[in-house]
């Protein structure tokens, strides 16, 4: 069948060129071959970049508002950490963790979530796009839909959270007396980036779910923002069932708990071996598989609006 279509396509083009040459120019700039898998990813990234640039320019037309909201964003997330610090003025340890140790957890997950949120945080808006039908206009553009949805309303002000998270993380690493090895040094950036990738996968899965469940943005937020709130505290304060759930089902424990425990030389409450800390990139990769399958299924089931 693919063969038949190919021939039909060529016949169509031949018919086109048979017409008056001036009025019907040859179309040398469209790729006649279907893009390959890696080609699709590159196309997606390129499209993503183009759309992000447009949103940044759009935001810059309201410069004052941009500056204020960036500062506000950083301040609000910082207040989170201030709250934790105040708690530590009354207690010295929480679940066996000191303030710098908690700061390590807080900073790393805040940076990871901030990064995921910056790069594709608006995927949760897809529910609104589906309801008002504006997803239709995205579907007729030559850019993979996921790239367009991820870039939708890209907001540079979200950089505030990333900067704040990295700041707290830096302070934690500076105050802690970590027994540095090459592995541990490498683990810090790996932790932040894999954590961001895991959150990103959760966001994609959440967006896919919205094709079925209308407005389910809150479900997604409970895993991302809610998950991050949980990850700010040491795993030792939570029940074992919850720990199992976030290790083996929605593997949020790999965002920062397991790597951080390894950095601190502490044992995992579930008894996972130390090298599990290095599994985060692999876990991130693995969770993208169901997330992208869900996304495809979601797009295929898209029903659009009445008119």
């Amino acid at each position: 069948m693919a063969e038949a279509t190919g021939t039909a396509g060529t016949a169509g083009t031949a018919a086109a060129t048979a017409g008056p040459a001036e009025t019907r120019p040859a179309r040398e700039f469209t790729d006649p071959e279907a893009p390959r898998a890696h080609g699709r990813v590159l196309e997606g990234l390129r499209g993503y970049g183009l759309i992000v640039a447009m949103w940044i320019r759009s935001t810059m037309t309201y410069r004052t508002s941009f500056v204020l909201s960036t500062v506000g964003n950083a301040a609000i997330t910082l207040l989170d950490f201030v709250a934790i610090s105040i708690m530590f003025s009354h207690v010295d340890v929480l679940g066996g963790f000191t303030l710098p140790e908690i700061a390590l957890l807080y900073g790393s997950c805040s940076a990871s979530l901030g990064l995921a949120d910056l790069l594709l945080g608006n995927t949760d808006r897809i529910g609104a796009r589906i309801r008002d039908g504006s997803l239709d206009t995205m579907l007729v553009r030559p850019v993979p839909l996921l790239a367009q949805v991820a870039a939708d309303r890209f907001a540079l002000r979200r950089l505030g959270r990333v900067v704040q998270g990295l700041g707290v993380l830096g302070w934690a690493l500076w105050s802690l007396e970590v027994d540095w090895t090459a592995g541990k040094v490498l683990l810090v950036p790996v932790m932040v980036l894999s954590g961001a990738a895991i959150f990103a996968a959760v966001m994609v899965a959440g967006a896919a779910f919205q094709f079925v469940a209308g407005d389910a943005a809150e479900v997604q937020n409970s895993f991302t923002y809610g998950g991050c709130t949980m990850l700010q505290y040491p795993p030792t304060v939570f029940a074992t069932e919850l720990l199992r759930g976030v290790t083996f089902i929605v593997p949020l424990a790999f965002v920062n708990w397991l790597p951080a425990l390894y950095l601190l030389g502490r044992p995992d409450p579930l008894g996972l071996p130390g090298w599990a800390a290095f599994l985060s990139p692999l876990v991130a990769f693995v969770v993208f598989v169901p997330a992208s399958l869900a996304w495809r299924a979601g797009v295929r089931s898209y029903r659009s609006t009445g008119s």
């Binding site: 279509t5 190919g6 039909a8 396509g9 060529t10 016949a11 169509g12 179309r27 469209t30 790729d31 279907a34 893009p35 699709r40 196309e43 206009t137 579907l139 007729v140 553009r141 030559p142 850019v143 993979p144």
Partner: peptide, 20 residues
Amino acid sequence: RVAGIDPARERVRLAHRIGV
């Protein structure tokens, strides 16, 4: 078929051939 392309299957490729 539109211009020999199955629209739902190759949406991105079709997008180059149509205006909406």
